[in-house]
């Protein structure tokens, strides 16, 4: 029996007014994949993750989880299956913690209110322990460093046991010395086999964590392959151009 893909994006169209962001983008990932998406600024990387998370309307196409469509067009409207959407989690660039709740409550609010998950506190404490944040359980987000906040945000997403975790430039807002601690947490998740879709500008990190790298530009996937291919030896001229420019800027 052929197993269904964990995630399948089929012929995705998305536009803002006259601006076409996606023009028939298709992309699939397996359970073992850690997909890093690279591409020009304004190319739609954030929009893609937001669509997969169910935060955006689409103009055409559909998105499947385990072979079941959960985002699609129907009767001129975007339909989202919230049961399936709940199996996807997302971590944002700017943490988006709830400022009025302490760290523990940030983690337990959604599980308790929406799923009635028992022993959410014990689970939250175990996650905080695992990420070295147990001492901060009763602190408020404003009392944490950017790196700590982002680790809390990751823990919060993990509370709901997602089948797929999306990361949108989660280290871009951090001071350079705080980037490593967040990337270390993501590497640990990768080692545990967590399926992830990651947007990052950090090519070194991309190489370390990715099982596949996708270069998206002009509203479609231009190149898709292992990091050694897409980052070091791109097959498509357009990818080569982009990668060379990014690495040249780094030097």
């Amino acid at each position: 029996m052929v197993q269904d893909k964990l995630l399948k994006i089929h012929n995705l169209h998305k536009s803002y007014g006259d601006l076409d962001i996606f023009k028939g983008l298709s992309l699939a990932m397996d359970r073992g994949d850690r997909l890093v998406i690279i591409g020009p600024s304004g190319g739609g990387k954030s929009t893609l993750l937001r669509i997969v998370m169910g935060l955006e309307d689409i103009t055409g196409g559909d998105v499947y989880l385990d072979g079941k469509p959960y985002i699609l067009r129907d009767g001129g409207k975007t339909k989202i299956d919230h049961k399936l959407q709940a199996r996807v989690g997302m971590v944002f660039q700017h943490y988006t913690l709830f400022p009025h709740l302490d760290i523990l409550r940030n983690l337990t609010l959604a599980p308790v209110k929406t799923r009635g998950i028992p022993r959410a506190e014990a689970k939250a404490m175990a996650l905080l322990e695992r990420f070295g944040l147990a001492a901060k359980a009763r602190a408020y987000p404003s009392q944490l460093s950017g790196g700590q906040k982002q680790r809390v945000a990751i823990a919060r997403a993990l509370m709901l046991d997602p089948d797929l975790l999306l990361f949108d430039e989660v280290t871009s807002a951090l001071d350079p010395e705080l980037v490593a601690e967040v990337e270390a947490v993501m590497m640990e998740l990768a080692d545990h086999g967590m399926p992830m879709m990651i947007v990052t500008h950090d090519m070194h990190f991309a190489r370390n964590i990715a099982s596949r790298v996708v270069f998206a530009a002009g509203g479609v996937v231009v190149e898709d392959g292992p990091p050694e291919q897409v980052l070091d030896n791109p097959q498509v001229a357009r990818t080569r151009e982009f990668v060379e420019r990014v690495f040249a800027r780094k030097k």
Partner: peptide
């Protein structure tokens, strides 16, 4: 707006 995004991502509605 990010707070609404965070809620939606956590299924909090």
């Amino acid at each position: 707006r990010e707070q609404y995004d965070a809620c939606a991502a956590l299924g909090l509605g």
